[in-house]
């Protein structure tokens, strides 16, 4: 439970920090961010294959997306 609280606090603080600062761009300033390679899910097939490898070889999964499970192997 302590760990959960700690994580939540970190998350909240980070989101506060981000929310309070005046960040962002005007709608017409997204030319660079709109590039395919700037999408957070760019190279989705590669990321999926990597997740598969590391999921079955290491004890941790998820983060970028659902931690899932899928087998008793870890």
């Amino acid at each position: 439970m302590k760990k959960i609280n700690k994580l939540l606090c970190i998350g909240l603080l980070a989101s506060q920090a981000i929310g309070c600062a005046s960040l962002g761009v005007q709608p017409w300033e997204r030319d660079l961010l709109a590039k395919e390679e700037m999408a957070l899910n760019a190279e989705g097939v590669d990321l999926g294959l990597d997740d598969h490898i590391y999921f079955s070889k290491e004890a941790t999964s998820g983060g970028r997306a659902f931690a899932g499970g899928g087998c008793g192997c870890n």
């Binding site: 957070l40 899910n41 989705g44 097939v45 990321l47 999926g48 294959l49 990597d50 997740d51 598969h52 999921f55 079955s56 070889k57 999964s61 998820g62 970028r64 997306a65 659902f66 931690a67 899932g68 499970g69 899928g70 087998c71 008793g72 192997c73």
Partner: peptide, 20 residues
């Protein structure tokens, strides 16, 4: 299970990231 196993993490990754 070792190595070969079903990989939901990967599949969901692709699915949800489109949304995030």
């Amino acid at each position: 299970l070792d190595n070969s196993s079903t990989n939901i993490a990967a599949s969901l990754a692709l699915a949800t990231c489109t949304l995030l």
